[in-house]
Computed example of a mutant assay.
Amino acid sequence: MDSAGDALFRPVRTGNAFEETVERLLQAIKLGVVPPGERLPAERDLATRLNVSRVTLREALHALQESGFVESRRGRYGGTFVCTASPRAVPTTPSRVDDIEDVLILRSALEIGAAECAAMRPLSDEDRAQLRARLSECDTSGLDEYRRKDSRLHLAVAELTGSPSLTAAVADVRMRLNELLDGIPLLPKNIEHSNRQHAALVEAILAGDAVTARRAMTEHLEGSASLLRGFLV
């Protein structure tokens, strides 16, 4: 593996191990570090390089196999190989990259601040019930409705700030974000992880812990950003 491979297969550093592993593997495929038809490094070696468990690595590889980027081959010369015709959702252009980064930066600024503000405000029983209801909707949602229920939860957090202007801004950026999310597959492992992050976020807001709420939202948004950059950039 050349120096580019060493750079891409560096240890994962965030709390979103699955999402960042998917991003790293997609970068290696799209940049040609592992060319079409070639085999990825062995699972043990790759897991060590990325500093993730083999379970996490296998889940990431399964997601890419389901998305058509890699294929698994058995036998003496088996392993995980890059598909010769990997899917391309949309052409990657400088303007599209700029648009993705613009949305992600704006979303981060708005929603991390919203989570912090929501945790700092006194909440009524109705506020608390509404937030728990939105969380429950996400937990029980099927794949076909998940993004809509996810949007409702994030908007509910914004509404708890008591700022109509902030809520409107979060709604606007969420519309742009959902257009991007529609271009990538829904990954069950990511949804499972996302729901755990939602629960931690809601718990922090209900407890009035602004520092933890800010941290929970930051980590949650970083996971989505990793997948968007991996699939679309």
Results as ranks from 00 to 15, higher is better:
T84I: 08
A168G: 09
G68A: 04
T48W: 13
L106P: 09
G68D: 11
L155M: 09
T93I: 03
P36A: 10
L181W: 08
Q197H: 06
G113I: 04
Q130H: 13
A213G: 15
M120Y: 05
G208H: 04
L50H: 00
F69I: 03
S86I: 11
A225S: 12
F69A: 05
R215K: 08
L221G: 04
R44L: 04
G32D: 05
T161A: 12
R174H: 15
G113D: 08
Q130M: 14
V33D: 06
A133Q: 15
H193E: 12
R44A: 08
R96S: 15
R134W: 10
V52L: 05
R39D: 09
T212I: 13
T218Q: 13
L160N: 14
H62L: 13
R13K: 11
V97A: 09
L166I: 14
S141H: 03
L110Q: 12
A118H: 04
M175F: 14
L110S: 14
A216D: 07
V97E: 12
A129R: 15
S86E: 04
R58C: 05
F69G: 02
S108Y: 06
L180Y: 06
T48K: 14
D102I: 07
L177I: 02
R176A: 06
A28T: 02
Q197S: 12
F81I: 01
P188N: 03
R88C: 10
S151Q: 11
E59Y: 07
G5D: 06
A109L: 07
A169F: 01
R76S: 15
I191W: 00
S72W: 15
V211Y: 15
A89E: 13
G75Y: 07
L123D: 11
D2L: 06
L46E: 01
R121S: 08
A47N: 01
Y146G: 04
Q65P: 00
R88A: 07
A28F: 00
H220D: 04
E23T: 01
